[in-house]
Design a protein around this nucleic acid. Structure first.
Length: 502
RNA sequence: GGGUCGCUAGCUCAGCGGUAGAGCACUCGGCUUUUAACCGAUUGGUCCUGAGUUCGAAUCUCAGGCGACCCA
């Protein structure tokens, strides 16, 4: 390992002695490789094209055979072969009579080089740059991952993502798609007069979701602060302030476990539209996600882990009550006590969580156990019990319920929306009930944010609000099984011990 | 938090109670149509850690560490 590094440092010194860097200031490529591959697809085997090109990239493989060598050079768009002939190279580089020996002995796989030459398709049909000049751009001191197996160690893929990106075109494509998803989402919202306004990450009262926050401290004010667990309460303050369409797409932090669907920091977009309700938000959700899917995948029909998914609107809408009744035979409207519901659930071999202290919470428990995982095609699950939704408005016609939906795709919660609660008296009671649960030991329960209540007392228009988990959406659009596949640098335990990489 | 599996050369892995192995990579030599190039040679090890069983442990047992997958 360190032998390889020593050898490469020696080669770097040899290059420096030849006036070749090894860390060049700049290089001007004339083309990217994918464009060359595409534009010269018609070049016949063994033919050469009268065209001088300059390309830059990383040397991926080397095959040296006497007085002829083949390298593959990859730029961001992909690979192209270098056809390196001793006689040609040395005839066009009179300043270095050993140009071929230098190129083949001082350039290793992993180095970044620039080459210039003409285009030639080899007898075996590989489009190549026939090299007439070369320059070292950056000497690499570390080996590339195994050229055949790649980065087989999953952990190393996340820990050293740069290596994963170098050797895995699929990983590059995933992050390219993520960028397209985010930018097309912003553009769609901007075109509809939504304003993106940034709200604080550092908060003294975390709110807007049931989750444990990360804690931190501001020295100058000697103030305990938490990282935000949602953007909801500040975006609503902006609606109170008169912005009728606002959103924020950004990072959220929740102090919880790590799984294939959870990373402690993740990205959400929250969208608020004044004078709208949750039915309007359903339409907005399906339009927005279908649009993003079209932009990213070129179609609204996609395949996720072997299952075909159709994202063209309209999507199925079903109440939580109906879904649970269909799946379990239990009609939760009929239960007049928690015990009655619990007994009926046990009769169906459903687990009855001790923390679920009401019929509504049991309904949610039954939903999670028997329905959620089977909601493969996009489905709006509508009308939730009030107990679990302290920021959603009471249902217009169903007592004990709120106007809320969650969007499920491939069995995963992907979006959450309400007709927002704008009654400050009701809101205070709901948050106080949460605070009591908190005092009783539920550390995911919410607290009372007095300034937020004050804002509601100033008056907020009827508003529809929506949150979408960007990471889970990107997983869907990139066919990724784990959230770690769509986060460039997912949280990992730091490496310790003598081999630690920092 | 529970279960299953894994940890041996830089990488991918074999070895499962008796001298530590292969392929690739690296280094050196050869080679003008290769693309996992090929041919030859040389390098390269805290077998995750600790304790135990044994004449003898990479191998068996126990504990711990780290990771992957599944479940909650």
């Amino acid at each position: 390992m360190s032998d390889l590094r020593e050898t490469r440092l020696e080669k770097a010194a040899a290059l420096a002695a030849l006036g070749q860097g090894p860390y060049a200031l700049r290089f001007e490529p004339s083309h990217r490789t994918a464009a060359l591959q595409q534009d010269h697809a018609d070049l016949a085997n063994g033919e050469e094209r009268v065209l001088e090109v300059a390309v830059a990239g990383r040397v991926m493989t080397r095959r040296v055979m006497g007085k002829l060598a083949f390298f593959t050079l990859a730029d961001e768009t992909g690979p192209i072969q270098l056809f390196i002939e001793k006689s040609t190279l040395e005839a066009s580089m009179p300043e270095d009579p050993e140009a071929f020996a230098h190129l083949t002995s001082l350039v290793d796989a992993g180095d970044l080089i620039g080459v210039q030459g003409s285009l030639r398709r080899t007898d075996r049909g590989e489009l190549s740059v026939k090299v007439k000049g070369w320059a070292m751009l950056c000497k690499s001191l570390q080996p590339l991952p195994d050229k055949w197996h790649g980065l087989a160690d999953v952990e190393k893929r996340y820990r050293q993502r740069y290596l994963d990106l170098i050797v895995s075109p699929h990983t590059r494509e995933t992050f390219r798609r993520r960028a397209v998803a985010v930018s097309s989402m912003r553009r769609w919202l901007d075109e509809r007069d939504f304003l993106e306004i940034e709200t604080p990450v550092l908060q003294s009262v975390p709110g807007g979701a049931d989750a444990r926050p990360f804690e931190t401290h501001h020295n100058a004010l000697d103030l305990q602060l938490t990282l935000r667990i949602a953007t909801e309460l500040h975006l609503k303050r902006l609606v109170v302030g008169g912005f009728e369409r606002v959103y924020e797409l950004g990072r959220i932090f929740r102090n919880e476990g790590i799984s294939t669907r959870h990373n402690p920091e993740f990205t959400s977009v929250e969208i608020y539209q004044a004078y709208a309700d949750y039915v309007d938000m359903m339409v907005l959700t399906e339009q927005l996600i279908a649009h993003v899917c079209q932009q990213v995948c070129g179609s609204t029909q996609i395949n996720y882990q072997g299952t075909d998914i159709e994202l063209a609107p309209p999507w199925r809408r079903a109440t939580m009550h109906e879904l649970v009744q269909t799946a379990t035979g239990l009609d939760f409207n009929c239960f007049d006590s928690r015990e009655a519901a619990a007994a009926a659930m046990r009769a169906q071999q459903l687990e009855v969580p001790a923390l679920a202290d009401s019929v509504g919470r049991l309904l949610v428990a039954a939903f999670e156990q028997r329905v959620e995982a089977d909601l493969i095609q996009p489905t709006f699950v509508i009308d939730y019990p009030v107990e679990n939704s302290p920021l959603a408005r009471a249902h217009r016609s169903k007592p004990g319920m709120v106007e809320r939906f969650e969007l499920f795709i491939v069995g995963r919660e992907t979006a959450n929306a309400f007709s927002e609660l704008i009654d400050p008296v009701d809101q205070r009671q709901r948050l106080q009930a949460q605070q009591e649960r908190r005092a009783a030991g539920d550390d995911e329960a919410q607290s009372v944010d007095e300034d937020f209540i004050h804002a509601l007392e100033v008056g907020m228009p009827p508003t529809g609000g929506l949150g979408i988990g960007i990471d889970r959406l990107v997983m869907l659009l990139t066919d990724s099984p784990s959230i770690r596949d769509v986060i460039a640098f997912p949280l990992l335990r730091p490496e310790t011990g003598p081999g630690a990489m920092g």
